[in-house]
Design a protein around this nucleic acid. Structure first.
Lengths: 207, 207
DNA sequence: AAGTGACTGTGAAAAAAGTAACAATAAATC
DNA sequence: GATTTATTGTTACTTTTTTCACAGTCACTT
């Protein structure tokens, strides 16, 4: 099954919302309800769920727990996948923190930095190793995905290196845009872009 | 002129890349060159620039400096727009830091928190005020946009409140999805979604 | 000065994403 | 148990976004 990238993103968001529902002790949810929480349409929800072949059993809506599992079967690996954060500045620590109440099979198993003040300590819930040990640890810990939160001037160099070491997916949070060979999946996010987008639409609204 | 959201995002990215070019002392760039740096196609670049009515003058490609300015005219406010970060934990500090080498008319003028340890200090380049003063300062400092980096349990409440106080755009980095009345522009970003997307495509690649 | 090559700008076509419309079905109400 | 109401799954349609394809332009070469 080949899912559109947009659907994959939404599935992740559905799961996040469904987990919130569980906290609220809601065990069933209607498509329009789920949709409203995510500011999308009910049709879109139903269509995405159609694509993954999930259907509601009762007329009470979707079974929250069941749907969480179904989504998990699609977007999680069968085996869990190990992740490392590279660069444990503010952003790196923030990202690490997000893994705390984690909701998927993704495990943050290590972080890396060069600062002697940080190295060999547990920071935001993960042990921070010296970056020099990356090559060794990528195998020992079976790390597949790296989240790059290093200063921009190091981004290119490090990206090249970790790909050589065998990283298969990179989430790049630096302001530098990277190049990776095919076979490696790269996702980039630049928060300034989001901020500028908000500013643009705020501005337009006034006109 | 009503630009597609996607184009607005890319314009911001073009500018980022063009500024990198300036650093490298490149004064002209071809569409395919710009495209390659952003992993998109040359046609897409040309089409976006067509939409904003910019054309290359020489056969040397686009004038980097001029294009930066042109993009600025479109996506920046004529007047600069003031921004505040709410919640100055790791993520808040990271976001604040991004404004340092700022490339647009967006000014980060304040941050807010409740922690007495943080309040009234300059953190990551901005003064941190007590959140209690938000209503007063939003007018004094003419804040239009808020970046939400508070713990999830406060997100909804604070969002409602700041909208009541007159905020016109919110960039929500919390894991909670918000609701805002029309007239307020909301952009949400959940990094876990990005991470899960990377994991999904890494997994699929193997099959 | 005609030919070639390198790029651009853009109309037309294709693909992707999103929406509307509705038959089908279960539950609730009378 | 018939009628109404609520909600889903899905097909067909619409809109948005991306790509194709190619004519047009300049600069360089011969």
């Amino acid at each position: 099954m080949k899912l559109p990238g947009k659907t994959v993103e939404r599935l992740s968001e559905y799961r996040r919302t469904l987990l919130e529902c569980l906290n609220e002790k809601r065990n069933f949810i209607f498509s329009h309800d789920l949709a409203a929480r995510l500011h999308i349409t009910a049709v879109q929800v139903r269509r995405d769920l159609m694509l993954i072949g999930y259907s509601s059993v009762l007329r009470k809506g979707y079974d929250v727990r069941e749907l969480i599992d179904t989504i998990g079967k699609i977007i999680d690996s069968e085996l869990s996948m190990n992740v490392a954060v590279i660069g444990i500045g503010n952003l790196g620590r923030a990202v690490s923190g997000y893994f705390r109440g984690k909701r998927s099979k993704l495990n943050l198993v290590a972080s890396f930095d060069n600062d002697p003040q940080k190295v060999n300590k547990v920071i935001s819930g993960v042990k921070c190793y010296p970056y020099a040990d990356f090559e060794k640890l990528i195998h020992e810990l079976d790390i597949k995905i790296a989240i790059l939160t290093v200063p921009p001037e190091f981004a290119r160099e490090i990206a090249e290196e970790i790909v050589r070491f065998g990283i298969k997916g990179i989430l790049n949070f630096t302001t530098i845009s990277l190049n990776v060979p095919s076979g490696v999946y790269l996702e980039e996010y630049d928060m300034i872009t989001s901020i500028e987008k908000v500013a643009y639409f705020v501005k337009e609204n006034k006109l």
